[in-house]
């Protein structure tokens, strides 16, 4: 039995975990949920299903909080966002029902492993995002015209209005279905996948992509959360603490992000995330008794694996940066 003081301390600890998750999520652009689920399960030993439920519902708070600023600045494209939400909401429904199936058949270890893998792969578009490059301008295709994918926004850093044409709407919809599926399955915003859909598939500028994805995350998470509610995946005490924590964290993160001029500090956050990703994979394998390793060894494995991941990502970004510089030079000539 918990005393009142113990209960209060427990609440405060979860709020602090939420602040950490929100902060890290905002700094890396991955959102609070991606950090919250590993933290709650690995450090607090909270049942995975409750961690996922609390995470998804907290994601709505951060999405709404930051999207309110971006939509006002007219950077986020609400029209493109709503069009793509047809797929993300459908994907979220399928994802949530898949989670329910896994939960009912003692397959939750697979969710741990999948979570770790998704987290590690999400790092690729996230580090790429730090380069914030404009996509090569296109004339548009038939979907640009039919689905009105033309838009513009004022870029404050470049001090000019950027015009853009979205293309391959259908490819965007396909990627978005998977983004929604992952969101419902793992209780995260899956912003990284949404960014992939709009940046890679639809050729939208990174600023439009990230802000629109932020706005969309809330709608996808609302779909998943309402099913989670009926399935009993939301524990009010945990969800209350995480919603408060993640919101504070995301708010502080957004403020800090403007002040941090040295982008290298982000690598520290990326390394924490990759550590959490590897930990989740090992946790899943351990839960299914596929491997039995002592916790200390597990932490050592996660640390060395995350160092490897970070080195690989760093090399990838350096190559990307060189390519951009080369392309800009040849354009100038």
């Amino acid at each position: 039995m918990l005393t009142e003081i113990q209960a209060l301390l427990e609440f405060i600890y979860i709020v602090v975990a939420g602040i950490f998750a929100g902060l890290l999520g905002a700094m890396t652009g991955l959102g609070g949920g991606t950090v919250l689920v590993p933290v709650l399960t690995i450090f607090f030993q909270i049942p995975l299903i409750f961690a996922i439920g609390a995470s998804l519902i907290s994601t709505i708070a951060t999405s709404a909080g930051s999207a309110s600023a971006y939509t006002k600045q007219k950077i986020a494209n609400v029209k493109i966002g709503i069009g793509l939400e047809m797929s993300t909401t459908a994907g979220a429904i399928v994802g949530t029902l898949t989670l329910a199936y896994f939960n009912g058949h003692d397959l939750l270890w697979a969710i741990y492993v999948l979570f770790g893998v998704v987290l590690l792969f999400s790092l690729i578009p996230s580090v790429k995002k730090t380069l914030a490059e404009l996509p090569p301008p296109t004339e548009g295709d038939w979907t640009t015209r039919i689905f009105q994918l033309h838009g513009s926004y004022y870029d404050q850093r470049m001090k000019k209005t950027v015009e853009y044409n979205g293309v391959r709407w259908w490819a965007g919809e396909i990627v978005m279905f998977f983004a929604g599926f992952i969101s419902g399955l793992l209780g995260i915003g899956s912003g990284a996948l949404k960014v992939l859909g709009m940046d890679w598939a639809m050729n939208l500028p990174m600023k439009v992509t990230t802000t629109t994805s932020n706005f969309m995350i809330g709608i996808t998470a609302a779909t998943g959360s309402s099913i989670y509610w009926h399935l009993g995946y939301i524990q009010p005490f945990i969800a209350a603490a995480t919603a408060i924590g993640v919101l504070i964290g995301a708010f502080l993160g957004a403020k800090l992000l403007i002040r941090i001029t040295n982008s290298n500090i982000r690598w520290l956050f990326f390394s924490i995330l990759s550590f959490l990703g590897v930990e989740m994979i090992l946790e899943g394998l351990k839960a299914d008794s596929l491997v039995s390793i002592p916790s200390v060894v597990m932490i050592l494995i996660s640390m060395s694996a995350s160092v490897l991941v970070i080195v690989l990502l760093f090399i990838y970004v350096r190559k990307l940066r060189k390519d951009i510089i080369r392309r800009t030079r040849s354009e100038e000539q």
Binding site: E4, P47, L231, G232, Q235, P236
Partner: peptide, 17 residues
Amino acid sequence: LSQIADIYSTTIINSSQ
């Protein structure tokens, strides 16, 4: 309060109730 704050049991309190 101690039942509400029991974050380890999935049956004492959850949203389906």
